[in-house]
């Protein structure tokens, strides 16, 4: 039995469709919307529905053998796992964004609001810029509007949310998309099964 950690939500639905189309379906996933574990004994898979930012933790600690997670989360948490392929789903960029009329005052400490403190710190360290991080958990776009921060570092998919809040992208930090990850120990003991899965995904993606 292979435990697969899927991110709950839109991305998870797309990933499940992909996995189901290459022979790892699990019909019960459509039946009950409250359950978090779905199992198909015939093809030996068990899906776990997990908050996207926790998927990598489940895989790193071996509670799930493999999982699908955004590169943004991997960059932020840097878990010790194998990143076996790019699913080319949930594509977005981690960006620095600011109000439309923003001009950076390089003479002061830059205040950055973000859900990704580690990514933001590493990015500005590489530019040797002194910053102050404000860690938020949602509605990041609000921070610069209310003067809580100068800029934000967040994921931007289409840019609509930014436009609606009078914000613009000023720098791109990193590209992100859904990645297929595996626990290192589980990979050793299930290498054939997992490689077969990766092979099928790669064939489908081309």
């Amino acid at each position: 039995m292979i435990n697969i950690a899927l991110p709950k939500g839109r991305l998870g639905d797309k990933v499940y469709e992909l996995f189901s189309s290459i022979g790892y379906d699990c019909k019960s996933i459509y039946e009950d919307n409250r359950k978090l574990v779905f199992e198909n004994k015939d093809n030996g898979v068990r899906y776990l529905l997990i908050k996207p930012s926790d998927v990598a933790i489940y895989v790193e600690y071996g509670a799930a053998d493999i999982g699908v997670v955004g590169k943004d989360v991997l960059l932020e948490t840097n878990p010790d796992v194998y990143e076996l392929c790019d699913l080319n789903l949930g594509k977005c960029h981690l960006c620095v964004a600011a109000p439309n009329d923003y001009v950076e005052n390089t003479g002061t400490v830059l205040r950055v609001a973000t859900k990704y403190p580690n990514v933001a710190k590493a990015y500005y360290r590489s530019k040797n810029r002194e910053i102050e991080i404000i860690k938020l958990n949602g509605s990041i776009e609000l921070a610069p509007i209310l003067g809580l921060s100068d800029v934000i570092v967040d994921i931007v998919e289409t840019g609509t949310t930014l436009v609606e809040n009078n914000l613009k992208v000023i720098e791109k930090v990193a590209y992100s998309s859904a990645r297929f990850i595996a626990n290192k120990s589980s990979f050793k003991f299930n290498e054939q099964k997992i490689n077969l899965m990766v092979g099928k995904i790669n064939d489908k993606n081309i």
């Binding site: 600690y61 071996g62 010790d80």
Partner: peptide
């Protein structure tokens, strides 16, 4: 070295 029950080296 890895053993089956433990998820890390």
């Amino acid at each position: 070295g890895y053993v089956a029950p433990v998820p890390k080296a």
